[in-house]
Every structure is written in structure tokens, then in C-alpha cells.
Amino acid sequence: MGLQNTSSPSKTLDGVHGVHLLPHSPFTACEISQHEDCNLSTYESSRPFAANQRLLMTRVWQQRPPCFRPIHCNLQGDQNLAETIVNVLTSLPFVALGIQVPRKNMNNALYANSLIGVGVASSLYHCSRGDIRKYLRWADYTMIATATVCLSNALRNENPKLIMATSAFLLPFQPLMVSAVHTGMMEVAFAKRAFTKPELRMAHNLHKMSSILGGALFIADDLFPSTPYIHAAWHLAAAVGVGTCNKLLE
């Protein structure tokens, strides 16, 4: 008995109502090796795990402590063009002070460049409008904090490494806190040098008065943001305080 051709359709169901046989199967059979099947199963099973990991990281980031959250900047101020011009003009002294810093070493040069950056960041912020304004305000605060870190490092070459590392880590999130810590370190260094060097006492007294006035104006600017020219006055008081600090680097 000879073998029939398997490729030819069977005649058994011919003529049955509603049945139509195709000469070729519309499906294509292929072999999947055990290794490929395992890879496919691993990939399919890893997708939910990766999604859960991303969700977990998102929740952890959203629940991070307040000290790791970016500051909420006060965006009020610059009520009109005149106030903007005054705020920009009173930002320029920081650029001039940065140019005047004696660049005797790398730490002094970094501080000088950071002061120039403070003037530039402040000017850009006051000239800005719209959504970009909040980012430039953050850059303004961060640049001020960077300048205080560079100043304390220029006054004391061997700052504790833990303080410097922590300051660098918190700088993008809490620039005001970093500024406060390093400003305090600078004030202590200034007072010690003024005590041992009488020629610095006049500069130190001027620095203390400008610091007190600058702090009061900074608080008033936050409490009364609609009052014009308070921010510009704070610029000038801060510039005087920075100028007296340059005496320590000569």
C-alpha cells in the first residue's frame, strides 16, 4: 500500500455543507528552544518587578525629609520696570567686588569667581519673567551659598571635610542653611583676626553693622514683598559686608 501525499487535502469532508478546506495551513509552525523560552519568560516576569521598583523609588523620593527638598523661593518683587533696573544695578557691585579679590591662590580665585557669579545670577533673576523666574531664583540662592562656602574655604584652608562634604551635598536643596553655616564660620574667623590685628577692627565694625542691617532687610523683604526697593537696599548692605570680608584676603 503506497503512501499518500500529505500535502494534498483530504477528500473525506468534501461536500459537507459549511466545510471548506484550505490547501495549506494559514499557521506556520516554528520551534522555540528551551533557552529562548526561558529568556522570554524572564523578560515578561521582570517587567512587573521593574515597574514596582520605579514606583517604590518614586514614593521614597516623594517622602524624603524636608531638608532634601528644594526651597520654595519668594518670587514676588520687581513690581515695575524701575524696580527691576534698581535691583539689577545694585547687583553689579558683587561683580566689581569679585574682580577686586586678590587671587593669591586657588581658593581665593574660586571665591572671586563665585562673587562674580552672584552678581550675574542676581541680574538674570531680576530681568527674568515667566516660568523661568523660579529656576533663576533658585540659582540666585544657590550662587550666594556657593560664595559663602568658597569664602570660608579661602579664610581657612583646612575646614573639616565632613562639613564641606555635607555643604556640597545640601547646596542644591538648602542653600539658605548652607549660607547660614558658612557665614557663621566666616564671622568667627573675622572676629578672631580683628582681635589679633588692630588694623582690621574698623573693617570688622563696619562688617558687623552691615551684617545686622542686611539681616533685617532680608527678613523685611520676605515679610513685606510688595514694599519697593527693600531688596535693592539688602543688595547694598550685603555688598558692604562682602567688601569688608575682602580685607581678610589681602
Rank of each mutant, 00 (worst) to 15 (best):
Gly243Ala: 09
Phe68Met: 14
Leu162Cys: 14
Arg64Glu: 10
Leu162Glu: 07
Gln100Met: 09
Leu151Tyr: 00
Leu22Pro: 07
Ile99Arg: 02
Leu13Gln: 06
Pro172Cys: 04
Gln34Pro: 06
Ala29Cys: 08
Gly184Phe: 00
Tyr111Ala: 14
Ala145Ser: 07
Met177Ile: 14
Leu155Ser: 04
Lys208Ser: 05
Ile163Leu: 12
Ser210Ala: 15
Ser41Pro: 06
Pro48Trp: 00
Leu213Val: 15
Lys161Glu: 13
Arg193Thr: 14
Gly130Phe: 01
Asn5Thr: 13
Ser179Thr: 15
Thr84Gln: 06
Ile116Pro: 06
Leu89Tyr: 03
Ser167Val: 05
Leu170Tyr: 03
Ala121Ser: 14
Gln79Trp: 07
Arg137Ala: 14
Thr196Ala: 06
Pro228Leu: 02
Arg201Cys: 03
Ser25Trp: 00
Lys197His: 06
Arg64Tyr: 00
Gln174Cys: 11
Pro26His: 01
Trp234Asp: 13
Gly2Thr: 08
Thr84Val: 15
Ser179Val: 07
Trp234Leu: 11
Leu97Val: 08
Phe49Ser: 15
Met209Ile: 15
Cys30Asp: 13
Thr142Glu: 06
Leu171Ser: 05
Lys247Gln: 13
Arg156Asp: 15
Asp78Met: 05
Ala194Cys: 12
Ala239Lys: 04
Met164Gly: 09
Gly130Pro: 05
Arg156Tyr: 02
Ser91Lys: 00
Gly119Met: 01
Phe173Val: 13
Ala220Lys: 05
Val178Lys: 02
Leu40Pro: 07
Cys127Gln: 05
Ala232Leu: 05
Thr183Ile: 13
Asp221Gln: 09
Val188Tyr: 02
Asn108Met: 09
Pro70Ala: 07
His231Asn: 12
Ala232His: 04
Asn159Arg: 14
Arg133Ser: 14
Ser8Lys: 03
Lys247Val: 11
Asp131Lys: 00
Leu248Met: 11
Asp131Thr: 07
Phe224Asn: 13
Ser41Trp: 00
